[in-house]
């Protein structure tokens, strides 16, 4: 059964790696719902957050292919329950419309929107939250002339993760600890081996 999985990849900072990771999905005709690259908790280590809708079997195999790339340190995959995640959205609406209709103001309050720019002709609101929350505001604003809308990629924190510091230290060791090279996945075959 397909469902949403969030893949977190720790990598070296290397030109071309984004492409290497992206083509692992496109080769298998898997659509990437969103992808974010950012620094991680460790300087020099990058973190990809990739959202896809697939079966766990496919996601597990894809993660192994990602980890196979020379400059990838680790790939994890998680279901929504295992992560804390956010997406940010921006909405541009006509200022006249906002000023004229109190209803709109109430809508924005209810959706926890924040004005980030107010000009004579337009106002830009921002919300941060889960997909349903950002979607709710689109629906609400559409009848009032939503001029522009954009949503960021998902970013996510893994609830169980203790961070990458310890792991990285092992990676740097010539004689690595078992956590890095052992057959971790053998213990829990149902999970991705790198967890």
């Amino acid at each position: 059964m397909k469902k949403e999985f969030t893949i977190t990849v720790y990598t070296e900072n290397q030109i071309g790696l984004l492409n290497r990771i992206a083509i692992i999905f496109s080769r298998r005709k898997i659509n990437i719902d969103s992808m974010n690259t950012s620094p991680s908790e460790i300087e020099g280590i990058h973190r990809f957050t990739i959202l896809i809708d697939e079966t766990e079997e496919v996601v597990r195999k894809v993660c192994r292919q990602i980890e196979k790339q020379v400059e990838v340190l680790k790939a994890y995959y998680n279901t929504e329950e295992e992560i804390v995640w956010q997406e940010m959205a921006l909405y541009k609406v006509s200022t006249d419309e906002i000023a004229a209709k109190v209803k709109v103001e109430r809508l924005l309050r209810e959706c926890g929107a924040r004005a980030v720019a107010i000009r004579k002709d337009f106002t830009v609101f921002e919300t941060t939250g889960h997909r349903e929350e950002t979607d709710k505001l689109i629906k609400a604003l559409e009848p009032h002339g939503l001029i522009e809308f954009v949503r960021s990629a998902r970013i996510a924190i893994i609830k169980e993760s203790k961070g990458f510091h310890v792991k990285l230290k092992q990676f740097e060791n010539r004689e690595p600890g078992t956590e890095v090279v052992e057959n971790e996945f053998l213990n829990r075959q149902e999970e991705v081996f790198s967890m």
């Binding site: 990598t11 070296e12 020379v70 400059e71 990838v72 340190l73 990285l168 990676f171 740097e172 010539r174 690595p176 078992t178 890095v180 090279v181 052992e182 057959n183 053998l186």
Partner: peptide
């Protein structure tokens, strides 16, 4: 080159398996 931190060509074999 004998070591790249993100590249582990030789896994440690686990005897229990």
């Amino acid at each position: 080159c004998t070591h790249i931190r993100s590249y582990r060509p030789k896994p440690i074999v686990r005897p229990e398996y």
